[in-house]
Amino acid sequence: MGGLILRLAVFALLALFILLPLAQTFVLSFMSTLPREGMVEGQWSLINYRNILAEPALRESILNSLIYVLLNVALCIGAGLPAAYALSRYRFAGDRHFLFLLLAFRVTPPVVLSLPIFILFANLGLVNSPVGIALVHCLFNLPIAIWILESFISAVPREFDETAFLDGHSLPSFILRLLVPAIAPGIGVAAFFCFLFSWVEVVFARILTVTAGKPITMAINALFGFQTDIGLVMAMTVVSLIPGLGMIWFVRNHIARGFAMRA
């Protein structure tokens, strides 16, 4: 009994440690933290969220983030699925080394490649564009997508492929109609990590958005100044959490099944 109480106490303290900053952020987002006409500091109000809707730069930053993150996820899954299938089903010299090389590239610090990527994207006209951020995020997230999808495809018996081909399916038809539903949990896990890594990344988001196309992370950073409106910062932070929570809700079943399958 004593051990159970101790575990519950530790769990409660851990939950408090994690949730207290989030609760404080949520509360402050509904408070006026700067002097305003007809409103005292600390007064509860929707003024911060109204200011987000009224400020074009903040609205555009939210839209920019959604565009490049969703585009990044689509590119990573679209390119990673056939690559993962090839690595899982076909053997060639150095195939395992190639897979580990992809992971080694993923752990390369982004700042190391920031200058050549900026020069390349500037020449291609992709600076200050959500598309440019999506492409460079895909460069770093694609190895993760391939690694995750390859492990799930390898868990599917080869007889599954052979039976489909005997039934007259072409390779694209097999992948789209049969393989994708079979490894849907793996696709959910890969999409979740690609979304997460892209949403919180700030290095390339800062470098590739000099004058326009700034994502929500850069918009929040720009709110800090000599007189920072903490309430507005917290409101933008709450808004930035909504797409992530939506993504978790959308793929929650796939994530749970995916981790259970790999366990």
Score class of each variant (00 low, 15 high):
109 P>A: 05
113 L>W: 08
114 S>V: 14
115 L>A: 11
116 P>A: 03
118 F>I: 01
119 I>R: 08
120 L>D: 03
121 F>A: 00
122 A>D: 05
124 L>P: 10
124 L>V: 02
124 L>M: 13
126 L>I: 01
126 L>D: 00
127 V>I: 15
136 V>F: 11
138 C>A: 13
139 L>D: 02
140 F>W: 14
140 F>T: 03
143 P>C: 03
144 I>F: 10
144 I>A: 02
146 I>M: 11
149 L>C: 02
150 E>V: 03
150 E>Q: 13
151 S>W: 08
154 S>P: 01
155 A>T: 07
155 A>R: 14
158 R>K: 12
158 R>Q: 11
159 E>H: 04
160 F>I: 12
161 D>G: 04
161 D>Y: 04
162 E>H: 09
164 A>I: 04
164 A>C: 04
165 F>R: 12
165 F>L: 09
165 F>I: 11
166 L>P: 03
167 D>Q: 10
169 H>S: 12
170 S>M: 06
170 S>H: 03
172 P>F: 13
175 I>A: 10
175 I>P: 00
176 L>S: 09
178 L>M: 14
178 L>F: 09
180 V>K: 07
182 A>N: 13
183 I>A: 09
188 G>N: 07
189 V>I: 14
190 A>P: 00
191 A>M: 14
191 A>R: 10
192 F>T: 15
194 C>P: 00
194 C>L: 08
195 F>C: 10
196 L>T: 11
198 S>G: 02
198 S>W: 00
198 S>M: 03
199 W>C: 13
199 W>F: 11
201 E>G: 06
202 V>T: 10
202 V>S: 13
203 V>N: 08
204 F>S: 00
204 F>A: 00
204 F>G: 00
205 A>D: 05
206 R>A: 12
206 R>T: 15
207 I>E: 04
207 I>R: 06
207 I>M: 12
208 L>G: 07
209 T>K: 07
210 V>Q: 08
210 V>M: 09
211 T>N: 11
213 G>H: 04
215 P>N: 02
215 P>F: 01
216 I>M: 13
217 T>F: 06
218 M>A: 11
222 A>M: 10
223 L>M: 14
223 L>Q: 15
225 G>T: 06
225 G>P: 04
226 F>K: 01
226 F>V: 01
227 Q>L: 13
227 Q>F: 14
228 T>F: 10
231 G>R: 09
232 L>M: 08
233 V>G: 02
236 M>Q: 07
237 T>K: 02
238 V>I: 14
239 V>W: 00
239 V>G: 09
240 S>I: 05
241 L>D: 05
242 I>R: 05
243 P>I: 12
245 L>F: 14
245 L>N: 04
246 G>W: 13
253 N>W: 08
253 N>L: 12
253 N>D: 15
254 H>F: 08
254 H>T: 06
